[in-house]
């Protein structure tokens, strides 16, 4: 749903997203990098169980909370770094979800 305007000289980093290795755009936030790669969902709501997507992208709404290197962080204010391990727990039931 988003496309890159200027695709020249884009640097990438290798990270692990939901258990799969992935190359994402470097130098931007984790959430922007996921959006750039076609992902809209950030997590399952711990209260409704439904998928959430980022809303404000400026650190206010906390909809993009996801597990980054073992800690729940706002993906829109966390810069992506190589070898990051990102888990959105999108397929889990409420019992195992870690908000």
């Amino acid at each position: 749903m988003f496309k890159q305007v200027d695709t020249q000289d884009l640097e990438t980093v290798e990270v692990v997203v939901d258990g799969e290795p992935r190359k994402l755009q470097a130098g931007i936030s984790v959430m922007a990098a996921l959006l750039a790669d076609g992902e809209l969902n950030s997590r399952l709501s711990p209260t409704s169980g439904k998928p959430c997507g980022p809303h404000c992208l400026m650190g206010v709404c906390f909809e993009c909370l996801m597990e980054i290197d073992g800690i729940q962080r706002q993906a829109c204010t966390t810069e992506i770094e190589k070898e990051m391990v990102i888990n959105r727990h999108l397929s889990e039931t409420g019992e195992n979800s870690h908000e």
Partner: peptide, 16 residues
């Protein structure tokens, strides 16, 4: 999404 969110994506990541 907020309109500001999409504005930020353009500035930060060159996304439209």
């Amino acid at each position: 999404m907020g309109a500001g969110a999409v504005n930020n994506l353009a500035k930060e990541a060159g996304l439209v």
